[in-house]
């Protein structure tokens, strides 16, 4: 089994249902027939602008949204089968790390109770084992052990993201969906979290689906990169090839727009001052 996730012709449409009085509501086609696979131990990145459908794909993969059509297989198991068994089965196969770490932790629970839930419900460990695991998990994400008695608001964004990663690790799932895991963080903290993710991947044999809008971050962590544009996957290739020779026009624009440290104001064409609204109004 070499593929962690296989997705075929995945479609998600929001709204558009018949309403009580017969009219059809406005439909939003968030994902329009996307196919890809995530290999074992691979980091596949999905890049795209806001509204391009990348987060919708992620939410479908972990079972937070139901696909309109298309097939998904996670770890060789059929999605519909997993879905029928409930969220518990999902949680053991695949875990999700949210963009805003502080919002993903319940403000009224201590870290101890937050970490306890997956260990108890997904792994079924007894209290002795849970205690030991919690300490191991905090070690893995490099947090001090007094973390457990504290509340989420006492931590900075970077620390909260470490805790959120620890919670995802607790399920011992081999596949992780990381939805913009570093975009809410300061650069120095971002680098630390990226390093941590890299270490954890090796240590626990994980496969990552890494969603981001930051091309430089994506290039530094991913094996292959997929580009989403308006609900479609316009390009999918290895990171080296994609950044060296982007095939799709949108990918080229994305790479040209990425801010760089060297000054190259002159080299950039001043074409799009007028043509700007076109892209932005569609995005």
């Amino acid at each position: 089994m070499s593929n962690a996730i296989v997705v075929k012709d995945l479609v998600k449409t929001f709204g558009g249902k018949r309403s009580l009085f017969g009219g059809t509501g406005h439909a939003v086609h968030a994902v329009k027939g996307v196919s890809f696979e995530l290999k074992q131990n691979e980091t596949l990145a999905i890049v795209g602008e806001s509204g391009s459908g990348k987060s919708t794909i992620a939410r479908m993969l972990v079972g937070l949204e139901t696909p309109t059509s298309g097939t998904i297989a996670i770890g060789g198991q059929d999605y519909a089968e997993l879905h029928a068994k409930g969220s518990r089965e999902f949680g053991q196969m695949i875990q999700y790390v949210f963009q805003d770490p502080v919002a993903s932790l319940n403000p009224r629970k201590t870290i101890d109770t937050i970490l306890d839930v997956p260990l108890k419900l997904l792994r079924g460990y007894d209290s002795e084992k849970r205690k030991a695991r919690k300490r191991e998990l905090l070690d893995a994400v490099q947090m001090p052990s007094d973390t457990l008695e504290r509340y989420p608001h006492e931590f900075s964004g970077g620390q909260a993201q470490r805790i959120a990663i620890a919670r995802a690790l607790a399920a011992e799932a081999k596949i992780m969906v990381l939805d913009e895991p570093v975009s809410a963080l300061d650069v120095s903290v971002q680098a630390q979290v990226l390093l941590l993710l890299d270490d954890l991947k090796r240590e626990f044999d994980l496969s990552y689906l890494f969603i981001s809008h930051d091309l430089a971050v994506v290039e530094s962590v991913s094996d292959r990169v997929a580009v989403m544009y308006l609900g479609e996957m316009v390009e999918l290739d290895t990171a080296e090839k994609l950044f060296a020779a982007p095939g799709h026009e949108y990918t080229r624009e994305l790479i040209a727009s990425a801010p760089r440290l060297e000054r190259e104001r002159q080299s950039r064409p001043e074409t799009d001052r007028r043509g700007t609204t076109e892209l932005s109004s569609r995005a």
Binding site: V62, G63, L64, S87, R88, F90, G91, Q95, Y96, F98, Q99, D100, A103, S104, L105, N106, P107, V117, P118, L121, L122, A164, R167, A168, A170, A171
Partner: peptide, 12 residues
Amino acid sequence: REFVDAARLSGK
């Protein structure tokens, strides 16, 4: 909110 989604993924 995201912490509700997170709790679902934790098996609640």
